[in-house]
Design a protein around this nucleic acid. Structure first.
Lengths: 185, 185
DNA sequence: AGGCCCATGTAATCTGTTACATGATTCC
DNA sequence: GGAATCATGTAACAGATTACATGGGCCT
């Protein structure tokens, strides 16, 4: 039951609507959790009912009205409680790895195509993360920022996301090279 | 619906029982997919019904009887079809990252404890993977093995698992160092 | 005697995904 | 004129987790 905590963590720094939160979960937040808009709307409703977030209606005339949510004291306490619990180990669960596992029995052409797609995707994601990191740290050096910056949590998780995507990209390229070399023989 | 494909991929090289498969999903297979025994028993039953795997009863006297499963021609064809599809991007979904995201609002002591636990876990997992890789490649050099070995699929996914766990370990240690440095100020 | 390994499942619940639904505004 | 953006959901289904159930053999 960690989606609720991911939502709370994402709302700590900014007051967001469900729609904006969905955008965040598609971008920056996606380094530590992933969820679809429907889940987020449902979760926000539940969290509000339990008093862990508070919503306020914002009336707009050119746009549909929206509700902005912020974390309450109860929400922060719930996060504290969650942080004190042992974290479950995280597992990779990846279609592409399943395909590579079966590589010796499959057509290398298909596999190379999938790997190239993923390498491109991871490359693009990595560039997004790099831009985000730069934006967060501003003109400060990384060491300086990490020692004295105020909001380092999002920076640190984004760094992990960057390394993850770079590793994905590099691994895909290596596997492509191996499959090509074997086909050539 | 990729658990079925993970099961098929895991059964390609060996004939396994549900119990053995569950062990495999706890160890080597866990670099590309994770599942609990109940899921595996259920999936094997379904796969057998659809003719994608074939089971045979093995009678044992000192142990309970078991059923060993192997992939059929239909199963292999299903894997081929699956490999030709576009793979979904894989997302990190990790309790620990949620906690670090909220780091600026939480007690660093709790967080450091969780990070240390995870670093130790990842370290242990990495060692397991290293041992597995060595076993698979035998006395051959890695490049040689990847070019001429017969079963490189499991090797390549295990390599990805190893890099993932090393990256986890290193990131945890870095975050601990950052949190300690900030607490010291 | 107590605990772990082998071996297989069922049932209930919780989470996540896919499909559907609505409707105005702004950008190209 | 068509697509994208803002904004919020409901409903049905698929997938994953947790709890429960059984029972003999082996090790200390």
């Amino acid at each position: 039951m960690a989606l609720r905590h991911a939502v709370l963590a994402a709302l700590l720094d900014e007051e967001l609507s469900g729609y904006q939160l969905a955008k965040a979960f598609d971008m920056g937040v996606a380094n530590f959790w992933h969820a679809l808009p429907q889940q987020l709307y449902a979760e926000l409703t539940r969290l509000e009912k339990e008093g862990l977030v508070a919503g306020r209606e914002v009336v707009q005339d050119t746009r549909p009205n929206k509700r902005l949510f912020r974390v309450t004291g109860g929400g922060l306490a719930e996060l504290e409680r969650f942080a004190a619990e042992a974290a479950k180990p995280s597992f990779i669960r990846d279609d592409l790895l399943v395909k590579v596992q079966a590589a010796d029995h499959l057509d290398p052409g298909d596999l190379i195509a999938r790997l190239a797609e993923r390498a491109a995707f991871s490359e693009a994601k990595a560039e997004q993360f790099e831009a985000l990191l730069e934006k967060m740290r501003g003109d400060r050096a990384e060491g300086e920022f990490l020692l004295h910056g105020e909001r380092i949590g999002p920076y640190l998780t984004c760094r992990r996301g960057l390394d993850f995507e770079r590793a994905n990209r590099d691994w895909c390229r290596e596997v492509i090279a191996v499959l090509r070399a074997r086909s050539a023989v």
